[in-house]
Design a protein around this nucleic acid. Structure first.
Length: 389
DNA sequence: TCTGGGGTCCTAGGACCC
DNA sequence: TCTGGGGTCCTAGGACCC
């Protein structure tokens, strides 16, 4: 019988801040922005802040209204990633098979680990204790025979919780839950559930596979059918390799000025392209994203070329052409984004012969700029869109 | 209340080819 | 003068997750 733990850090970013700043402990901490920051959202709220009704993804201005006395922070991703590494190292002490899902959660395959650590519940307790002693942070854990059920179980008794679903009890466990607990069914699906009168997983359990598919579509209907039976075991199995790379910015005030818009586009393109250069990937597909301030509508554009993009200048020129085709001139831009899709591992053999000399020189120049940027973070080299021209 | 940023996956429709 | 079906690649948009 397989056995998995889903380990999920409690209010991770806020907890790290409270660890680093003792004066924040026991107080409502909201990471995401400072009061007065327009267009920010809450990234993480400490449990003290949640008591005021503040939660993740809430517009910051709303959080400030609910909790005017809170401690507001923009956040420090570098520090959170550093702390994340410490946490993952502790997880790794308990299982040779660790699958990190994000900065603050992971699955541990603990099948066959009884001899070393005792039964799953004891192991989970030891894990929680070790994480607290070695990092100063608390973690909630769910234990079950498959990852999907373990993931839901970890959310059952947060914070600092432990919830074990005994083998054979997976379906019973799921049946007892409201549909809001189904991982993979977000806001829109919850509305759909409500419209059809589905309140608990038991309501959905009454649907035949056929009926579920006719209501929710082939893929999602089949997923729901298995999820409410505790059988959606392969949900987290897929080997996720990187498929795209992107950056986007929401501006405090909508952009109208053409030069400013294009400068921002160049800046975003540089950020993405330099990130790409640090990987083994190349890409033939570019995309842009524009969100208008007026109605929050979002449009996107994508284009695939014959050969991979070799230089930042090439990337930017193609982005700009795509942007000009998609942009409704005169409309204020709230968000601008750009990226590279269909990432494939570099195939040097195939590529090199197509490069002409000038292009190769340009590539080398960009590589050296990348190195300078790496050695002197924040160097002005990244800014402006004329340094390569 | 007025909606982040970085990702993944799914669907539907069009183009093109055999 | 009227045209099927399947496969593949591509694009746009949307749902969802942390």
């Amino acid at each position: 019988m397989n056995c998995f733990i889903h380990a999920d850090m409690d209010a991770f970013y806020a907890a790290v801040e409270q660890l680093d700043h003792p004066e924040y402990r026991g107080k409502p901490v909201i990471v995401g922005g400072l009061p007065g920051d327009r267009r920010s959202v809450v990234s993480t709220a400490s449990y003290e802040a949640r008591a005021w009704g503040v939660h993740s993804a809430m517009p910051l201005v709303q959080a400030v209204k609910l909790c005017p006395g809170g401690i507001y922070l923009r956040g420090n991703m570098k520090r959170y990633r550093e702390k994340s590494k410490e946490v993952m190292a502790v997880f790794a002490e308990f299982s040779p098979e660790l699958q990190q899902l994000s900065v603050d959660e992971a699955f541990l395959n603990i099948t066959g680990m009884e001899k070393l650590f005792g039964p799953p519940e004891i192991l989970a307790k030891k894990l929680k204790k070790a994480v607290y002693e070695e990092t100063g942070l608390t973690v909630s854990a769910g234990v079950a025979s498959n990852k999907y059920v373990a993931k839901i179980a970890s959310g059952m008794s947060k914070p600092n919780g432990l919830y074990v679903v005994p083998p054979g009890q997976e379906e019973q466990f799921m049946l007892s839950l409201p549909v809001s607990k189904i991982w993979g069914a977000g806001g829109k699906t919850q509305e759909l559930f409500a419209r059809h009168g589905f309140k608990t997983c038991a309501d959905l359990h009454r649907l035949s596979r056929k009926l579920s598919v006719s209501v929710f579509g082939q893929s999602f209907g089949d997923f729901i059918y298995r999820a409410v039976r505790g059988e959606a075991a392969e949900t987290f199995e897929a080997e996720r390799e990187s498929r795209s790379m992107s950056a986007e910015r929401t501006f405090s005030y909508d952009l109208y000025d053409e030069f400013e818009i294009e400068t921002q586009l160049f800046d975003i393109a540089s950020e993405v392209f330099f990130r790409l250069l640090q990987t083994e990937f190349q890409s033939r597909t570019i995309f842009i994203k524009i969100r208008y301030g007026e109605d929050f509508s979002t449009i996107s554009g994508r284009e695939t070329f014959q050969t991979p993009l070799g230089t930042l200048n090439e990337f930017y020129e193609k982005l700009l052409a795509l942007f000009r085709r998609k942009y409704r001139a005169g409309q204020g831009i709230r968000l601008l984004g750009a990226g590279l899709g269909s990432l494939e591992t570099k195939d040097t053999l195939q590529q090199k012969e197509f490069f002409n000399e000038a292009k190769e020189r340009e590539e080398q120049l960009e590589q050296s700029i990348l190195k300078i940027n790496a050695r002197f973070p924040g160097a002005a080299l990244k800014r402006g869109r004329s340094w390569l021209a």
